[in-house]
Design a protein around this nucleic acid. Structure first.
Lengths: 151, 151
DNA sequence: ACCATAACCTATTAATCCTATATGCTAAAT
DNA sequence: ATTTAGCATATAGGATTAATAGGTTATGGT
């Protein structure tokens, strides 16, 4: 399962993309409108800022805004940072590769081969879906229509 | 990431499928040959027995063996039992569906729609890969060849 | 210059989960 | 009867997660 941090990060980003022409948005506004715990969200937004995905202004009329075009922000990046590697086993991870301690035959391991398939397809979907696509998906009516936004 | 329990369960099952014509296999033999922690594996095998995936004999010349044909045992079932739902968000899970507490618009939620796609493809792969296929995958030389065993 | 505001940053908590081991019990074969 | 090997449960230690608290720093308005 995705961590709350990862899910909240995605929700906050989608919201910020939607209201992107309205200047800086308060943490409190994001939290209230998306029903996310305010202080917890604060940490997440800070991390997104350090990632250079968001930028911020302090003090009066401050708040957060996107630091990039929505089309340049990939779901895969956010999930990896906030939830860890996409891979289900370390030996199939691109970003955190590690051989299993109990590994007997790396090349022929069936678990590894199947999990690699799962990871590759997951990466294809998540890296191929940008924040821009997410906004479009939310605007569309049917799940079928939303499929068009995938690579 | 997959839990150790799930990974060990899969490895033990593949091993048992390979030596299936040799009668009951000792926990200690499975543990030693697959380099898995013996007592931890014991719990896992017991759970597999209660699932009716394995059967066992106690006492002298006892051990574990498959309770079904390898072609009838799906990877998806094992992963779900030992690792939890395949879904990355509860609102997209078939076996443990739950609406997110912070959900504002279920039908249009972009996170949900994308994660549903990921879940569906993951389920297609894991439910479409049987223990029999896993044994064949381990016997094959190239990763390309192993793709043939997927649905 | 001052003050209100809002983001920044760090520490801490409670709860849960994960991996693994320990211990005693029960069933079966010889 | 004895030995073997699985059955069952308890428990420990560690790691991770979700969330809150509290003080600090920057900034715009007056």
């Amino acid at each position: 399962m995705l961590s709350m941090r990862a899910k909240y990060a995605l929700k906050a980003l989608i919201y910020l993309a939607k209201v992107r022409d309205q200047g800086p948005v308060l943490i409190g506004d994001i939290a209230a409108s998306q029903k996310l715990p305010r202080k917890f969200l604060e940490q997440i937004l800070l991390e997104l800022k350090n990632l250079r995905v968001l930028k911020s202004r302090q003090g009066k009329s401050g708040g957060y805004l996107l630091a990039k075009e929505p089309a340049e922000i990939e779901m895969g990046q956010i999930v990896r940072v906030f939830n860890g590697p996409l891979a289900l086993v370390p030996c199939v991870s691109v970003t955190a590769f590690e051989k299993c301690a109990e590994c007997l035959d790396f090349d022929h391991c069936g678990v590894r081969r199947v999990m690699k398939k799962v990871r590759d397809i997951t990466a294809e979907i998540l890296d191929g879906t940008t924040l821009e696509a997410m906004v479009n998906i939310e605007a569309s009516e049917s799940d079928e229509a939303s499929m068009m936004y995938f690579i």
